[in-house]
């Protein structure tokens, strides 16, 4: 239906990616604003379980394209199927997560159809009969809001963790509409040869707790200590550009303007001065703890809690206290 709000269901290896349903919560709010419905759309080789789960998280209808060619994620194939569904049903807006998978599908589908695309959205609201989309610009120093001027649908990617996850209600179910969309391997230019799982499995974007280190760590050895704290708290290890450029830790850990943008619930910055390029990637974290020897370091201006001192003395003490308080 026109005015419906669609949410793309991201999944991998038959499992919905963690937090994938946060979009159904905000999607419902937008749909209420339009007096329409929030619907999910899913593409895969087997979609029944995924569709059921989407229903439990509030989707009233689930549109699905199913087929052998969609076994394993392939951006190119998924984008073609997504474009087919969006063109057929023309919802008001389609929301994707701003992950590598969500972004690739959203961008290719938008380009194929010539639809507008707003990326890495952090705010969504119905305003004057249109969806007002807000994104951070220039390292979060500004926020820019836009509305679609052209015909629907609008496509938007949404920053992970920008919105709270919806409530699950297993008694709710959605009507599933399966559409057939023929696509053969021969129609595609890409083929996945293999997937090499990362030994450390860094997933900064999904992490609730990040322990991050910068130039002030002095050496790669400092990261072993941060890793111990992160492991203890079930978090991930981040880094500033200075630490990555010093080759103390691989690039996949980098937070900031030329790294990842993160929004964890707790961000512990150790030996990070807080240059605007780093703040750009983490300033919207819920709680920021800064540990730095320099009392004038700009990171303290962004911190919820500041500790002036040497991380080499403070972090081991924190590890000791956490171990005893959490009985670990």
């Amino acid at each position: 239906m026109a005015n419906d709000v669609w949410v793309y269901i991201e999944h991998k290896d038959g499992v919905i990616t963690p937090m994938s349903f946060e979009l159904l919560g905000i999607g419902k709010q937008l749909a209420d604003g339009f007096g329409s419905s929030v619907c999910a759309f899913v593409i895969g080789d087997k979609v029944d379980d995924l569709a059921k789960e989407a229903g439990a998280f509030g989707a009233t209808k689930v549109y699905a394209v199913e087929g052998e060619v969609f076994k394993g994620f392939r951006g190119e194939a998924y984008a073609k199927a997504a474009a087919f569904l969006l063109e057929k049903y023309k919802p008001e807006i389609a929301l994707f997560r701003a992950t590598s998978m969500g972004t690739d599908v959203a961008a290719a589908a938008a380009a194929q159809l010539g639809f507008g695309l707003c990326t890495d959205t952090i705010g969504l609201a119905v305003d004057g009969g249109k969806v007002k989309m807000t994104r951070a610009a220039f390292g979060g120093n500004y926020s820019v809001s836009v509305v679609n001027e052209k015909a629907a649908p609008q496509i938007a990617t949404v920053r992970p963790k920008a919105f709270a996850m919806g409530e699950k209600d297993a008694s709710k179910s959605a009507e599933v509409v399966k559409e057939s969309f023929a696509l053969a391997d021969a129609d595609l230019a890409t083929k996945v040869v293999e997937f090499i799982k990362s030994a450390t499995a860094v997933n900064l974007v999904e992490a609730d707790i990040i322990v991050s280190g910068g130039r002030g760590l002095g050496s790669d050895a400092g990261f072993a200590m941060l890793q111990e704290l992160a492991d203890l708290l079930g978090g991930a290890v981040g880094a500033s550009r200075a630490a990555v450029d010093s080759e103390w830790i691989p690039y996949e850990h980098q937070v900031g303007q030329t790294g990842k943008t993160v929004k964890p619930k707790i961000y512990i910055a150790c030996g990070i001065s807080g240059a605007i390029q780093h703040l750009a990637g983490m300033r919207t974290s819920d709680c920021i703890v800064a540990i730095n020897k320099d009392p004038d370091a700009p990171i303290f201006k962004a911190a919820s809690f500041g500790i002036v001192g040497d991380y080499k003395e403070i972090v081991p003490k924190m590890i000791e206290k956490f171990k005893s308080k959490l009985s670990r």
């Binding site: 500004y142 809001s145 509305v147 201006k301 962004a302 403070i314």
Partner: peptide, 30 residues
Amino acid sequence: STKVVEIAVPPPRGAGEILKGEIEEIANTI
């Protein structure tokens, strides 16, 4: 396809709290 309707400067983060004292005490508090 989109038109800018608003540019805003987000409110600064509220001033945080600097934890003072001996390391033992700071680690306990944080």
